[in-house]
């Protein structure tokens, strides 16, 4: 049994059950003592962050809370200044983003990220490059899943925002991740596109872990089973999704004092 011992000055310890923490140590991801600063400004100072296989783990918080920094540290896009990250029981703290991706950590970006000179289909082929011999889904099947099959031959640079978001997700899924990091996947989507996104995410295999950074509480409510709330780079609270959404402190964080009714919606 492993438990969280270290508590940051202004943060609170994680409430994750020991069973989840143990599963994360086995086949999931565990980050301990992650700290990142830009000059004198500390943007993330987190004692632990765990993702067990099959987790639907949302990370929420106001702008500047350190959510995207956390995702970048987990994906390897940013090198951790201190702390350690293990994945599948292996230390990956010093591993590059490409290595982590091949190991099964896929991601989408806050601003949908595509290859501008390639067609939609070629973008997905690039995403599944390392599985092209034995793909779980062919690129066309992935495009069908995200609703872009009719745009397969369109240059990705010409896609509207919503389609780019879906393409970003398709590229990530083509990489056959076991841990999928989603950075505000619903930002800028229409209601119909958001519904489609939720359908896609709801249909992901149960063994795939998902870390979701999102401002849309509807999306968080529909998907997440566990929520971590960050504020000024530290954990404000975490817990099962229903309990965190009902937490007055979380409502106050988003909406100011007295906003708990809205937060619960």
């Amino acid at each position: 049994m492993r438990t969280v011992h270290r508590i940051d000055a202004d943060g609170v310890p994680s409430q994750r059950p020991h069973g989840d923490v143990d599963r994360a140590h086995g086949n999931g991801l565990v980050a301990t003592g992650l700290r990142h600063a830009y000059g004198y400004l500390t943007v993330l100072d987190l004692d632990t962050f765990t993702v067990a296989p099959g987790d639907r783990h949302a990370v929420i918080g106001p702008n500047g809370a350190g959510k995207s920094t956390l995702l970048n540290l987990l994906a390897g896009a940013t090198r951790a200044q201190s702390g350690a990250i293990t994945y599948n029981g292996q230390t990956i703290t010093r591993r590059q983003a490409a290595w982590r991706a091949r190991a099964g950590i896929g991601r989408t970006f806050q601003h949908p990220s595509v290859y501008p000179d390639l067609t939609v289909l070629d973008c997905v082929r690039m995403g599944g490059w390392h599985h092209r011999r034995h793909p779980e889904r062919t690129p066309l099947e992935v495009l069908d899943l995200v609703g872009l099959i009719d745009h397969a031959d369109v240059l990705s640079a010409t896609l509207p925002h919503g389609h780019r978001r879906m393409l970003d997700l398709a590229v990530a899924l083509a990489g056959q991740p076991r841990l999928l990091l989603l950075d505000e996947p619903a930002a800028g989507l229409t209601d119909a596109e958001t519904t489609r996104l939720l359908d896609i995410l709801d249909g992901l295999p149960s063994w795939m872990a998902v870390v979701l950074v999102e401002h849309h509480m509807d999306v968080v409510a529909a998907l997440a089973t566990w929520i971590t709330v960050l504020h000024h780079g530290r954990r404000l609270t975490d817990g099962p999704a229903d309990r965190v959404r009902a937490d007055p402190a979380v409502a106050a964080l988003y909406l100011g004092p007295g906003g708990d009714d809205a937060a619960g919606q």
Binding site: A97, A98, W99, V171
Partner: peptide, 9 residues
């Protein structure tokens, strides 16, 4: 898009 390429392995 170098960042996307790295994120795809």
């Amino acid at each position: 898009n170098e960042a996307r390429a790295r994120a795809s392995g």
